[in-house]
Structures are given as structure tokens and as C-alpha cells.
Computed example of a mutant assay.
Amino acid sequence: MGILNMTPDSFSDGGKFNSEKSALLHAGKMMGEGASIIDIGPQSTRPKADFLTAAEEIKRLGKIISLIKSEFPELLISLDTFYAETVKFGFDEGIDIVNDISAGQFDSQMIETVLKTGLPYILMHVNPDYASMHEKIKYDDITCDVNRFLLEKADELLKTGMKDIILDPGFGFGKGITDQYKLLDESQYIGLGKFPVLIGISRKSFIYKQLGKGPNEVTEETQQLHRKVLEKGASILRVHDVAATKVAVDQFLRN
């Protein structure tokens, strides 16, 4: 899953792809490098990012979803939003997956809206509201706590009739460095094998800060971690560096 941030303030590529032309070119580049899914984000969720309304997200998206679908029909498009109204817009434009960092907690209409679309839903572990989503939580056992949250939410969704659920343990959201490495080491337990698992660690600060590097300087370290989570059963890698990740995936598949 290649990341397409249509934002001026994302932490590593803000402002690079927030025009239709640059976004379309980047989507094509990522597809050529091996991405089969493009995750479009109209709003940055890094700490201290500008908060946008659904209307502002929709305005920022413009026609890029339908343009990508028209130009690259084989690509699956995931829409990264926590707003029901943005999901409705994206569905009309042709999205294939809803990627909701909020687990339905930031918009009371989100789950009902996703159900109506019938689209697959990425369910992420996060703190219960937007204001607290980056507050560090002290966990007794992060893997057990994250798993409990995800499985309880997934069970609720299954009871509503939702069928296609993907779990995301939420790296970079309210978790300390030690806990995140523990979660990586124990990622085989996420979902207990009942659901596909998405891992999104690309350019996250828990990797680069302790190394004294920047977010764009840890490609090899990130690929080492990608190989680890693939061995532990990860189904989807959400990444900025598609070409490097494709090499890691191919190496894993050959072994």
C-alpha cells in the first residue's frame, strides 16, 4: 500500500503531492514500483497537524480519486479519513477501501456509512478521541491491550453485518518506543489469525528518532522491520518507499 498524502503538512512529504497533477504522477510512480493499493490521505494526523473538517477534506481531494481510477483502473484506492461524509464522497468517486484511524470513534456516523458502502474497512487501534490520539498511554501489556481493543471492535462490526475487516495496531499513535518494538516483535498475535493485518511503520518517529536520523533516512532499518512483520504474518504494508519495500517483499517471498 503506497501512501499518497494530499496534504501541505504531513511530516515527511507535506506539500509534494497536493495538486492533481503531482498526485496522479506519484500514484503512477508507486504503481510502477509495485504498489497494488494507493492510500489517499487528505488530512495529516501527525502530532500538532492542522485539523480539517470533512468539507475541507473533500475540497482537498477534488477529482483525484476518479482521475486515478480512470488512469490506473487496476489500482485499488484506499481513503484515509475518519469522516463519514468524506467516505460518502470517496465512494461516489470510486474508492475500494476505507482506512479509518479512529475505529469509528471520531464520527458517530462512520460505521453506518461504511456498512452502506459495503467496502472493506481498516480498523486501527487509537485513543478514544482526536484530541488525545497522540497522548502516550502506559500499557500493562501492549500486545494484549491492543489486541483486546481490536478484537472487541471487530466483533461489534461483525455483528452489524460488516464482512471485510483489516486490523491495524496503530503504530505512531499514543505508544512509546519500547512498546512499539514489543508490538512489532509480537505482531503475529494481532487478531489471533482471524483477520488480515496492516502494518504502518513507514517513516515513524519511533524508528528514526532513537537513531538520530530523519524520517527519510531510515529506509533500510524500516525494511528490516518489514521483513520481520511479513514473517509474522502481516498482509499489507503501508509505505512511502514502495520500491524498497517491493525488494523486501520479494526477498521474503523467495525465502
Rank of each mutant, 00 (worst) to 15 (best):
residue 177 I to E: 02
residue 178 T to S: 15
residue 181 Y to R: 00
residue 68 I to G: 09
residue 238 R to W: 00
residue 27 A to H: 07
residue 189 Y to S: 13
residue 65 I to D: 01
residue 81 T to D: 04
residue 12 S to W: 01
residue 17 F to D: 09
residue 53 T to W: 07
residue 252 F to M: 08
residue 106 F to P: 08
residue 140 D to W: 04
residue 23 A to W: 06
residue 62 G to N: 10
residue 54 A to I: 05
residue 156 E to L: 14
residue 81 T to W: 11
residue 15 G to C: 06
residue 241 D to W: 02
residue 95 I to C: 07
residue 155 D to C: 12
residue 54 A to N: 02
residue 212 G to A: 05
residue 20 E to C: 09
residue 29 K to S: 04
residue 183 L to Y: 06
residue 154 A to I: 06
residue 79 L to T: 00
residue 204 K to Y: 07
residue 118 G to S: 09
residue 47 P to G: 12
residue 86 T to V: 10
residue 28 G to P: 01
residue 208 Y to A: 08
residue 248 A to H: 05
residue 66 S to W: 14
residue 20 E to T: 12
residue 91 F to R: 06
residue 168 D to Q: 05
residue 245 T to H: 06
residue 254 R to P: 03
residue 191 G to I: 00
residue 119 L to Q: 08
residue 14 G to T: 13
residue 211 L to T: 01
residue 206 F to R: 11
residue 65 I to K: 04
residue 74 E to Y: 05
residue 1 M to R: 02
residue 247 V to Y: 05
residue 166 I to G: 01
residue 206 F to H: 10
residue 18 N to C: 08
residue 80 D to T: 02
residue 234 A to E: 12
residue 118 G to A: 09
residue 154 A to Y: 03
residue 249 V to M: 15
residue 42 P to Q: 10
residue 51 F to R: 13
residue 70 S to T: 13
residue 142 I to G: 07
residue 110 M to N: 11
residue 72 F to C: 04
residue 133 M to R: 11
residue 74 E to K: 13
residue 67 L to R: 13
residue 94 G to M: 01
residue 235 S to V: 03
residue 38 I to Y: 01
residue 226 H to R: 07
residue 227 R to F: 07
residue 246 K to F: 06
residue 239 V to L: 03
residue 168 D to T: 10
residue 78 S to M: 06
residue 26 H to R: 15
residue 198 L to S: 11
residue 71 E to K: 14
residue 180 Q to C: 02
residue 207 I to P: 02
residue 135 E to Y: 12
residue 86 T to G: 09
residue 155 D to T: 15
residue 249 V to D: 10
residue 255 N to G: 07
residue 240 H to N: 12
residue 24 L to I: 10
residue 181 Y to I: 05
residue 60 R to T: 14
residue 248 A to K: 00
residue 21 K to A: 11
residue 196 P to Y: 09
residue 90 G to P: 00
residue 47 P to C: 07
residue 214 G to Q: 08
residue 244 A to F: 04
residue 155 D to L: 13
residue 98 V to T: 05
residue 156 E to N: 13
residue 91 F to K: 15
residue 200 G to E: 02
residue 115 L to Q: 01
residue 190 I to W: 00
